[in-house]
Amino acid sequence: MKKLVILFLFAVLSVNAQETSQMVSFEGKIANRNSDSIVLATGKNFKKTLRLNKRGQFKEAFEIPADGLFQLFDGSETTLLFLKNGYNLKLTMDAKKFDESIKYEGNGAKENNYLAQKALTDEAFEKDLDVLFTEDESTFNASLEKKKMGDLSQLEKAGVDASLSQMLTSMIQQESIMLSQFYAQKKVAEKMNGAISPSFNYENHKGGKTKLEDFKGKYVYIDVWATWCGPCRAEIPFLKKVEEKFHGKDIVFVSISVDTQKDHEKWKKFVTDKELGGVQLFADNNWNSDFIKAFGINSIPRFILIGPDGKVIFADAPRPSSQALDSTLGEFFNM
């Protein structure tokens, strides 16, 4: 779940800022870059592409819609950036190490170095989540409360800008609530493990319809997602890597979109433009589709692993960005 909860909360909370044009200056140098540009975005109405020169350097002054949190995407990974009117910020980073190498200087450095350090703390905690999700409720809740109180304490000590502190306080509290909901969902999902999976028969992006029975004799890894879902999109690069690693094995990767019918064309274009692999399907009735309801899916992304015999192995399977998925599939194929 690397960064997914915090990025989802960022997407929800960042759109509420009152928009007024603000000017910031941002420069930096990125070693081992993943692309020729980085992208800054927030909410639905702001996206800024910063071009890198041959040395991986960039420098530009530009307007932002309002002070607040921005998502920085380097073509492969994502981090959060806090920008405020008048900031003159300088970034240095090694894209191969990403979070571990991020360092800021200049006006706004304190706030953004804090965000970079928090990302590392969150990642360390999230590596333990797969194990924590197997614990009893009291143990899980105690760990969650310890994480929340620790985050709030560190935020207070950091002495960052008051507006950032207010945003992060809300995000930290909401993160705890969301993880509790994930835990409850996983416990419900566990009851389906070992049972014959419900079926589906959905529109295939390549034409016609595809049903679960078409994959009999193969493992089926299902990604339930939507084009509007930021955390879903964040998993796509990892899913592509997993597909590549297990290409030629007896496993099929199926993505089921729960976009509404009005976004059908948006889904078709997204799959084409992003060159999504695997089997791309469109659920017949978004969240109310029988397959989706049978698994009790009320939040996405959601991943499901079904065995060659049609039985559910994991009704709530490890995500593509999790090392647990790689090791689980590796055991099935002796890799």
Rank of each mutant, 00 (worst) to 15 (best):
L7Q: 04
L13V: 09
N16F: 09
N16Y: 02
S21A: 14
V24C: 02
S37V: 07
V39S: 08
V39P: 04
V39C: 04
K44W: 05
F46P: 01
F46H: 01
R51Y: 08
R51N: 13
Q57R: 10
F58N: 01
A61H: 03
P65A: 06
A66R: 02
D67V: 00
D67E: 02
G68L: 03
F70I: 01
F73M: 06
D74Q: 03
G75P: 04
S76L: 12
L80N: 02
L81Y: 01
F82H: 03
N88K: 13
K90I: 09
D94R: 07
K97W: 03
K97T: 15
E100F: 07
N107T: 15
N107E: 13
A109C: 08
A109I: 10
A109H: 09
A109R: 10
A109P: 08
N113C: 15
N113I: 05
T121H: 12
A124G: 08
E126M: 14
L132E: 03
L132C: 08
T134A: 12
D136R: 05
D136N: 06
F140G: 08
F140Q: 04
S143P: 05
K147E: 10
G150V: 06
D151W: 00
L152S: 00
G159L: 01
D161I: 10
A162W: 04
L164F: 05
M167K: 12
S170I: 09
I177P: 12
L179A: 12
Y183P: 06
Q185P: 08
A189I: 06
E190W: 11
G194V: 07
S197T: 03
S197R: 03
G207D: 04
G208A: 02
K209Y: 08
T210E: 06
T210A: 14
K211T: 06
K211R: 11
L212R: 14
E213Y: 05
F215P: 13
K216S: 09
G217Q: 04
I222W: 07
I222F: 06
A226K: 15
A226N: 08
R233C: 13
E235S: 14
E235K: 11
L239W: 04
K240I: 13
K241M: 11
E244P: 06
K245M: 09
G248I: 04
G248R: 11
G248K: 11
G248C: 04
F253H: 05
F253W: 05
Q261G: 10
Q261C: 12
D263C: 10
D263F: 14
K269I: 12
K269G: 00
V271W: 12
E275A: 14
E275N: 13
V279P: 10
L281Q: 02
L281P: 04
S289K: 11
I297T: 01
I300W: 01
R302K: 08
R302T: 10
F303S: 02
F303R: 03
I304N: 00
I306T: 05
D309P: 00
D309L: 07
G310T: 03
G310H: 06
V312K: 06
V312C: 05
I313K: 02
I313E: 00
R319N: 11
P320N: 13
S321F: 02
S322F: 05
A324V: 15
T328I: 11
L329G: 01
G330D: 06
E331Q: 15
